[in-house]
Design a protein around this nucleic acid. Structure first.
Lengths: 112, 112
DNA sequence: TCGTTGTTCAACCATGTGGTTTATAATGCA
DNA sequence: TGCATTATAAACCACATGGTTGAACAACGA
């Protein structure tokens, strides 16, 4: 179900290392070693993060010789964004109220 | 930093119980008991989820007599959505291809 | 005042997470 | 062939998470 995909997607995104890896992949496909290199952690540690991203469907891997090339698969991000879009009306209502309050304030105190 | 807020926001959203609680709050403010009631878990369990949502800044609580009324605070959702919007170009490339294919199909079969 | 209700807190448990190290494979190259 | 590179897997550690129970506290109503 989509609900379960949201679980794993949000879970995968809840870590700055993994978000960094996604950003890195946005610039081009990379191997696990290249993905982990900026993060001052062991190769095995980086590989675990890659595995989380992969099982969340956010990346796919294909073998190229002895390397594993990872590529971005943004579809789950899209689902997550669609879910978040649900809430847009809530923050826009607040913004409207805020603007109304500011307008009211201006009318009452025009020289502030 | 915003990065840390993303951590806690995505972490809070990575659980169906908590997403359900947010959806419930979208319909109106609720007490902890009311929030937890649909989820077949102990009150203390529900209160833990509420605490996670609160420390992620997604809800705020105020005392009303002996009850704790929780209200939605959607701002962190907005930040999360803004982060996800970054990636739109990646899936829109794919969508463009899909739309082009559909257009092509319509031209060839105009009476579908 | 007393009981009921809503909540908080601490302790506990099983499991998951983020990280390590180490060993073991698989591949490419001199 | 032998060695360096890249990845995988397993074992381990400290800590967080999701859940429980039970005790205590605060506030409302009879």
């Amino acid at each position: 179900m989509v609900e379960q995909r949201l679980d794993t997607t949000f879970r995968a995104l809840a870590d700055p290392t993994r978000r960094g890896m996604l950003a890195s992949l946005a610039l081009g496909d990379k191997s696990i070693g290249e993905l982990g290199e900026p993060f001052a952690m062991s190769f095995a540690g980086a590989a675990k993060h890659v595995k989380v991203l992969e099982s969340a469907g956010l990346i796919e891997r294909c073998k190229a010789g002895r390397r594993q090339i990872c590529a971005l698969r943004p579809e789950p991000l899209r689902e997550a964004e669609a879910w978040l879009k649900q809430w847009e009306k809530f923050w826009s209502v607040r913004l409207d109220r805020l603007e109304a309050a500011i307008d009211r304030d201006k009318k009452e105190n025009p020289n502030d």
